[in-house]
Design a protein around this nucleic acid. Structure first.
Lengths: 241, 241
DNA sequence: TATCGTAGGATTGTCAACAATTATGCGGGT
DNA sequence: ACCCGCATAATTGTTGACAATCCTACGATA
């Protein structure tokens, strides 16, 4: 990872392409990707100096990037100790999905209130199509990514800047949580059908059925986790301090 | 403002009281309070060096504090230019209230689903009582603060860490927006009655009426703003880029 | 006189070093 | 053998200085 820079060659061409970019922002993006990729394990400490040398920069930008991720909920800071990848419990996933469901339901309601839905429906259908292909290739990371895109597209369509912002952090936490608790993305056979059904309901303007289906769609991951949790609850009892 | 430190006397007693505190955090709190107090006007730029000398620290902690506030939505950063107090439009207030309403409705629904509500009801009633006294004293800043406490108490009672976190930023933005658009808090005579009614409905466990009243409660500020907006809409047409 | 190019000043972004705090390992005492 | 206190080591928090970038104002030219 982080092969973009050499030891101290800071004049990378990528930096020039978009002048309105900050080094901190790039670092934040890279670290975020690394966290979500599972590069840093649960509870691991992120050494500032180490990260700095890894990215070929000083500790300043790294520090700012870390703080940004802390505010996003992807890292936890203990003053004078360090920043750690949070150890998310099953209750955290449930909490995350509780808020996510709320936000998406609101977005869905707003979408079905507007008469112009052709564009969203087209985009969502395209995502589902790609998803179908990815499932056929058994490219699960891609499926997970498309799942993210699908739900984000719905929330974005609501046209609320704050809703989008809140949802973005929730979605990042979701990904982290799934990574931590289930070791990646689950192979859910019903996933395609559920998304396709949602698209159809949106197209037809069926408000209540769409909301109900969305709720059902969210109830499933929680139940899946609870099943997965049952097989490793012995490990969780050790850290009830 | 910021008379806590002298020129370079960093060993303030307040710093020692809570060892698990970061200088950046304190700075962030101070700057946030200053923003919400209206110390920094709409669109004003916050000079890092100036803030640093004001607080008697270096630019590092100031920078981190600013970035924290940026992520909270209370400041806007333009790379290589500076950080500014965002110029919020009426549409922003509407957007903020849209998300706030959604979150509070979710919290309310969850509260009314739990059988143990005595503690919340007691706390909320206490806040309303203080509010009544503050209104009698015409202490509007205090009324605004109690209003904030009231709604935050409701959201906190839902017991969702993410809901609380998201709501906190929304509430800060709300305060900023009201400060910017209406020059502070409005003197709403019906405010006390509305809150009291909400408390009663929560106590009685009346789900649907409580949700309806909460919606009504949120519809009002938006309408108030739209009225206030009517008197200055000529200024808003200039920046439709 | 208006406009374009350029020099100046100011502010942010970044860096390397210093200081404070915390955790760990060792030695002595009970 | 176990526990307490102290010194050491590592990491974060903070600082001041350097470099890149952007805005502004001035002057030359058409």
């Amino acid at each position: 990872m982080a092969s973009r820079n050499d030891t101290n060659a800071k004049a990378a061409p990528a930096t020039k392409r978009l002048p309105r970019t900050t080094l901190s922002g790039q670092i934040a993006e890279q670290i975020r990707a690394a966290i979500l990729d599972g590069t840093y394990a649960l509870g691991a400490q992120l050494n500032e100096m180490e990260l700095a040398s890894t990215f070929g920069v000083s500790r300043g930008p790294v520090r700012e990037a870390l703080q940004r991720l802390i505010q996003e909920g992807l890292l936890r800071s203990e003053p004078h100790r360090g920043v750690f990848v949070p150890e998310l419990a099953p209750t955290d996933l449930i909490d995350i999905y509780f808020v996510r469901r709320s936000l998406e339901l609101v977005a869905m309601r707003r979408i079905l209130e507007t008469p112009e839905r052709a564009e969203v429906v087209r985009d969502l259908a395209g995502i589902v199509r790609q998803m179908k292909a990815a499932v056929r290739r058994k490219d699960w990371p891609q499926v997970a990514d498309l799942d993210m895109q699908f739900h984000r597209r719905i929330v974005d369509e609501a046209g609320s800047e704050r809703l989008t912002r809140s949802f973005a952090t929730l979605q990042a936490e979701t990904r982290l949580c799934l990574q931590m608790l289930m070791g990646g993305y689950r192979e859910n056979a019903a996933l395609i059908d559920e998304h396709q059904l949602l698209v159809d309901l949106i197209e037809r303007g069926a408000l209540e059925p769409a909301l109900a289906e969305l709720e059902r769609h969210f109830g499933d991951p929680v139940r899946t986790l609870q099943k997965a949790n049952a097989s490793r609850k012995e490990k969780l009892g050790a850290e009830a301090a």
